[in-house]
Structures are given as structure tokens and as C-alpha cells.
Write a protein that binds this DNA or RNA. Sequence first.
DNA 1: TAGATTGTTAATCGATTAACAATC
DNA 2: TAGATTGTTAATCGATTAACAATC
Lengths: 205, 205
Amino acid sequence: MNAEKIPDIIIGRLPIYLRALQRMAERGVQVTSSKELGEQVDISAAQIRKDISQFGEFGKQGMGYNVAFLIEKLREILKVDRVWDVVVVGAGDIGHAVARYQGFTDRGFRIVAIFDNDPEKIGKKAGNFVIQDVAHMGEYIRREGIKIAMIAVPASAAQEVANELVEAGVKAILNYAPINISVPEGVHVQYIDPVTHLQRMTYYL
Amino acid sequence: MNAEKIPDIIIGRLPIYLRALQRMAERGVQVTSSKELGEQVDISAAQIRKDISQFGEFGKQGMGYNVAFLIEKLREILKVDRVWDVVVVGAGDIGHAVARYQGFTDRGFRIVAIFDNDPEKIGKKAGNFVIQDVAHMGEYIRREGIKIAMIAVPASAAQEVANELVEAGVKAILNYAPINISVPEGVHVQYIDPVTHLQRMTYYL
DNA sequence: TAGATTGTTAATCGATTAACAATC
DNA sequence: TAGATTGTTAATCGATTAACAATC
């Protein structure tokens, strides 16, 4: 085990490896190699070996990696060997889709509540959840010790929502609003904006 | 203007700059600097100047950058000074949310059709679109000359769908299915998987 | 055993930052 | 003009790749 600081770029690749390994496990594959995994995720075999070896010696020379074992180790490293409760802010189309999304199961996350500020929406349902008044969000987050939130409100409201989340103790935010938000040191933000992804590809068309 | 090959990592930052500049323009900001833009997007001023200068001299010493002009140039560079037609495959929760998403407007993209293979869904509506039979997808793409598609089907079907899209002439795919897909040289793929983003943050919690 | 593949070191490659002349 | 900020070069930093001994 290596206690030195691991570059974030490596951490960012681990979920990709984990996802590919879980697909392999579904297919019944029990052992893989850095070469095979690399072909799956389009990353060089050397890179994969180097990344994984930051955390321990999880492979066997000549044999490769045991898929189930490597999955277990990656889940531990990424701290998704447990289930994190996540709140969703914003019950528009994205909020609804997220609230109904089945893809969190078994990957370390569980939506536990959805909030909105629109009186028309509060009390109605989004997936299996009753949409709650955002006025009660801070209290809820504090009481339940929530650390992770997803922002699915209009860009104009995103920073304000982020401030409330951070104030209540949230440490990781996945932001679907197409705007950069600023948060204090120690709070993490990731962005999902389909348009930026598309724009990155049109350059090459 | 510089005709040499621009690193993809730079191309990937341009949509972020563009998004921040468009927010500034909305707020009525007419001129900005690499320093100010850098604070917005959390990237160093030197980096921003270097990135932008790959494509021309768009700023003025002592003055900074004209926001409207820089937006115009970035849109040209990224080829989003036009509107690209996009098809969506998969009319589940994500497909529906995408079909109804208002955020493509004025950013270079327009959803033009949504396809599914479920007889229960075909003929019903998703947003303003009638869900079409995926059996007619290839023909539609060829006829309309579509170059961009979004995959919102289960992981188990994503590769097959990608193959059909590529076969029909699609050159850029935004994949919402949580699986890596392989495509021929010259076809671009971007991934949106909320779980990988979340897992990247839990490491630090 | 012979073959395969890891873990790791050293070499290479590429990206970021610092610094400053140019100039608005 | 004086102050500000770009565009660009050189220096630094970090990430990727190549190569191979170790060993399963």
C-alpha cells in the first residue's frame, strides 16, 4: 500500500476500470490482463498496470488479475464498498430522470430525497420520491448526515443552491446545471453538461 | 491562424470557456481578461491565454478580450456557429429527459428524432417527438445526413446501437450507457455516466 | 519448464507555469 | 503617459510509454 498522494488523473480512471471489470464479471470472466482491460477502455496496458500498482500488488505475474478481487479492491479504494445517500435538488426533467434512474444500484449510491422550490411541484412525486420543499433541505441534509448532492436546477440558481448544500455539510456535488460554480476548499464538484461534450466532438467533424 | 494539430486537451477546454463567456454576455459583461475568465472556470490565466492564442490573436494587450468577439471565434473554431441535428436512441427516462431538455438551444444542437425498439413506446411521444421504430433509424440518418447521435439505451444494447449508427454515417456519439463502446477510427465518442463522476469524488470523502 | 504478464524503473513525451517584451 | 494585459518563449513539472527483471 502506498500512502503518498495519488494524482487525481489516476483516481479519475479508476471508475472506468471498475465499470469495465463489472461488465466482465457479468459476462462470467474471472481473470483478465492489463492488455485485455486496456483494449476495453482504450487505455494502454502500461498505464493500467501503473495506475493499479499505486495501491498494491493486485495481480500475479504471468497470470493477470482476478476480476472479482480487483473489483473488490477498487471499490475499497474509491470508497464505494458501501452505499452513499444522495440528495437531488431540482425536480425538472433532469431531476425526474435522475430520481428514476436505476443505474446507481450496486455502484455505491442511493437517491434518498428530491427537493424543489416550486409550490406546484412540492408534494407531487418524482419516481418513488415525494418532492420536498427546498426550504427544508438544509435541515434534512444535516439530520441525515448527507455528503453528496446532485444539482439539477437552472443555471441561474445553481450557485445559490451550491452555497446552501455546502453550508449544510455536503462535500461532493454533481452539477447538471451548465455553469461553473465555486465552492470552498475541500468540497468537490463534477460537471455533467451534454453540450460541452458535444461541442468537444464537433471540432473534429 | 495556426494550422498545426491542436491537442485534444485544449479542444476540451474551449467549450468550458465558451460556456463561461456566454454567462458573462448574459450578465452584460463586454470585456474580460484571462485572469477573470480563469477565476470563473478555475483554470490559470496563463493556460487560458495559451489555449486561445493557438487559434489567433483575439485579445488586446492591456485591454483583455471582447466577450462577444471571443464567443464568436470560439463558436467558429468548435463549429457550433451553426445548428447540428442530433438523433436520440432509447426512449427511457434519459431519452425522454434529453428529448425535452431546453439547454441545446443556442449552443449548436437540435434534437430531431428519437428512436426505440419497444412496440409499447413506438408511436407515443417524448417531449415534442413521436418515438420512432429503431428499424427505420439507419434510413433516417442516411436521408437526413445526421452526423451526431446520443445513445440512451441499456448497456447491453449500446455496442449494437453504436454499430448501426456508425454504419449509417454518424461520426460523433454521446453515450449515456454505462459501458465503453468501440468505434472505428474517425468516429468520436464521449461518455456521460453520473456514477463514474460520483465515484471519482467519494475517494476524497 | 517455457510462456506470459506483472510491477517498476528509466526515458520520453507533453502539458503547465513563470516570466517578460510587446503594445494597447 | 502609466498601467494593464496579451502573446509567446523558456523552464518546470507531471504524465505516459518503453523496457525488462521478477516471478507466477
